[in-house]
Amino acid sequence: HRDALADHLRPDPQERPDADRPAETLLRLLTGAWTTQALAAFARLGLPDAMDPYTATGTRELARRTATRPENLATLLRYLTMLGVVAENPEDTTDAEGTQQTGDTGDTGKEESFRLTRLGALLRADSPDTMRPLALMYAGPFYRSFAALDHTVRTGQPAFDHLFGENHFDHFARDPELADLFDRSMAASSRMFQPLPAHPVITTAAQASAPRTVVDVAGGNGELLGRILTAHPGLRGTLLERPHAVEAARRSLDAAGCGDRCDYRSGDFADVPHGGDVYVLSRILHDWDDDRCREILRHCARAMPAHADLLIIERLLPADGAPSLATAWDLHMMCNVGGRERRAEHYARLLADAGLELLDHTPLPLEAYVLHARKAR
């Protein structure tokens, strides 16, 4: 279990050797942009798919498989070794006549060879839990917008809008390739959905004597709804999305074998279908400011029967300021869509303003939470 051992032996970031040397620490932080692009290049070049997690492969063979230059490839892979994405295994490259080969051997006289780690395997295109689309998205349009983060901090306007002349939802909708990449990048974080089919609200609906309907509001390509319907064959689903996303969801849910139990609605938040039993808002509210969130929640409240439940999936800002993915995404949402992450009590206030009551919130993978709300009594 080499990966587990490496994780165990890796120094605590708070105790790294340069912790008391601020200049070195700052230099490491400033190379974060290099990390983003190195991971994206690794994915774009198809290296994760060309590598084996158990057997190391020499750089010349990897270069042949990926149409890259061995010397430059070795430089990239050495950097990724520092990140734990690949692991290095030196191999002797002396040929049959005893002549030392050169080109990608560095100073060791041996060809460098690498194997894929469990971390790097998440960037394989064929992995069921692939995060490759996220790497491409964060190194693409969102990477460009972060270069104008100071504009957002000065003006309050999203840097994405400033650079591209329109908000990112409209921008992606007009570009089929970007729209597809965005949908796949959202699905790439779907491991946070794994516990949701077993949520008490969902299981109670599934056990009802009469068929119950789960309404996924702005449900993207149907990844979450598909998981719920697959786990509970007695449930029906309704997905509300923009027209281009509805078609992608239809294909996805048909492929999952549950498309025949799903209805599709093209529209906006004002078109939330009435009469559902469970309503889902997954990673929607963090896209918007408080006023727009209240409006979205009011649309949901008007559509919900008295018995209906609302499940909201979001990351929550920590109350104690502890390190959190939500803090990073708070910056991302501000820069790219003008939205924000929030604490649980903040969501409770927004729900109350819409006539809804927050009952509880429980943790999900990837530092997300599911918030359960109903109409206020």
Score class of each variant (00 low, 15 high):
T31H: 00
P197Y: 04
L181F: 15
G257F: 01
V201Q: 05
G276E: 07
P141H: 00
Y347S: 02
S282M: 01
D287H: 12
A38N: 05
G234E: 12
L359C: 03
T155W: 14
R302K: 05
A245S: 13
E88C: 10
P305E: 05
L9V: 07
L356W: 03
T55K: 12
T31Y: 00
E61C: 08
L39N: 03
C335K: 02
V85N: 07
H151N: 06
R124A: 04
D277S: 04
D7I: 05
A139T: 11
R78W: 13
P70D: 15
A354H: 05
I313Y: 02
M51H: 03
R78M: 15
N72C: 10
A301N: 03
G355S: 01
S185H: 07
R236T: 12
G140P: 10
F193K: 02
V153F: 14
L371I: 00
E88Q: 12
H151Q: 08
R65S: 04
V153W: 13
R227K: 07
T75S: 12
W34Q: 07
Q157N: 15
L325C: 07
G106C: 01
H286R: 10
M51P: 06
T55V: 13
G103T: 11
A40S: 13
A249V: 07
A249L: 08
F169M: 01
L350I: 09
L123Q: 02
L224Y: 03
P22I: 01
D175F: 10
D271G: 06
T327V: 14
A179E: 09
T55P: 14
L281H: 04
L77M: 10
L285M: 09
E223F: 03
M131V: 12
A322E: 06
E241C: 11
A328W: 08
N89C: 14
L62R: 06
A306T: 05
H162G: 07
L359F: 00
Q101F: 13
L62V: 15
S282Y: 02
E367I: 00
A56C: 12
A6W: 01
D20T: 08
R118W: 02
S127I: 00
M192V: 11
A210V: 15
T35N: 00
A43F: 04
G226R: 02
E15I: 02
A348M: 09
P70N: 14
Q207R: 15
Y347A: 02
S282A: 13
R227E: 03
I202K: 01
R144Q: 11
T68H: 03
N167D: 15
P53N: 05
R2P: 12
T213Y: 09
A256M: 05
A63T: 04
I313P: 02
T35K: 00
T105Q: 10
D92K: 11
W34F: 01
A159D: 14
R212N: 12
L26F: 07
L239E: 06
A188F: 11
A328M: 12
A135F: 05
P197V: 03
V280T: 01
S189L: 11
A38P: 02
R340K: 10
